[in-house]
Design a protein around this nucleic acid. Sequence first.
DNA 1: GGCCTTCCTGACCGTATGGTCAAATTCAGA
DNA 2: TCTGAATTTGACCATACGGTCAGGAAGGCC
Lengths: 215, 215
Amino acid sequence: MAETTAASPKATSKKMRRQEAEALILSAAEKVFAEAGFGGATMQLIADVAGLPKANLHYYFPTKELLYRQVVQKIFQIWLQAADIFDQADGPEEGIGAYIDAKMEISRRHADGSKVWASEVMHGAPVIQDYLETTLTDWTNGRIEVIERWIAEGRMAPIDPRHLLYMLWATTQHYADFGHQIDTLNGGSPLNDKQWEAAKTNIKTIILRGIGAVE
Amino acid sequence: MAETTAASPKATSKKMRRQEAEALILSAAEKVFAEAGFGGATMQLIADVAGLPKANLHYYFPTKELLYRQVVQKIFQIWLQAADIFDQADGPEEGIGAYIDAKMEISRRHADGSKVWASEVMHGAPVIQDYLETTLTDWTNGRIEVIERWIAEGRMAPIDPRHLLYMLWATTQHYADFGHQIDTLNGGSPLNDKQWEAAKTNIKTIILRGIGAVE
DNA sequence: GGCCTTCCTGACCGTATGGTCAAATTCAGA
DNA sequence: TCTGAATTTGACCATACGGTCAGGAAGGCC
């Protein structure tokens, strides 16, 4: 998706619609923010990646911080989408298993976004603190209820739902955030399809058995 | 440890020994790099935190990059120390259990360092790539051998050791790197002793049962 | 005390950065 | 074709940053 929009820069017409210009810039910004962090990223570099003059960026996004904020919000939306899978499931094996699959897919397809999010939270969430306190808190509490119900129904062991969620987030996002380290330990090459499948399988095996959702 | 050195800034004498001055600066730098990232950190801010004039920093650490490199190396040493526990263990339950404890303790006591490391790796490890390729690769391969032996001896299920290690790293470091998110979801307060214990217990329960090292 | 090494620091410099602006360009609709 | 709103852009600005340097201060040692 990120490549899709970025791969079609200023083709025929010289004037862009607001929508596609913003998408192009957001895509470039996501990449640069992921690689350099907020402080290390420069508007000039983002402009170069987007193939636009710097002044044009400021036309669509008045300040660097505003641009950054939109990038983070974009990720958060994707992040939340994986939530649906959780609710629609019948039990822990299906629900948590599918959630792991979904989050691993996000780690693979939206690695840059994941890094931006991680960076933001690591630095104390200066721009999305309100999201953490509202949306994320609500989402978390909702999922805790679901897990507690599963436990009450005897469908999994009495694990603290909160720490289980942290483990799910940590493990899946690790493949995006620490992708470079994993690639290095993989001989310098990114994981191939088979290895991604192996990763998902291993995680699901350990966690689902670990919480007593499977034998 | 970080606080110990930082808590005794220029008391009586005006002149510091190289060793204590460097320790003071490294401690301040770790904090600032963790909060702002490499690009976002400024020598001026580090100097302010250390309580020294900026020019004094450049006396001990000629460039920002050199200072940063030393901070990262310092963390890496601590990181590797937790390895010993792994080897001295008799089996997976003891070895991995103790490793989780040790890494959780590091996450709690050296949260800033962990964040600096995470930031560095996330941005492609520009300054410690050689460490990843040599020391970390060797360490990882050594641990994989140990785990494979345990599997061969039937003391745990046939899990891919590599992905198990990633899960251990991810889960334990999450409590440092995403500490702010966890604190927010905890009502805005840091985890207390009891909660840290609960976290450790939950992680050990899930993983040790998940890999078939306990019933 | 005299000397020399080490340490300290205010003032300074070149550069790069985020952001501004006014003039030019494009294009849809009347 | 004309008009006006939307878009594009090079040139420009003030600031903040990493780093330098020369001169001063401390303190160990004879």
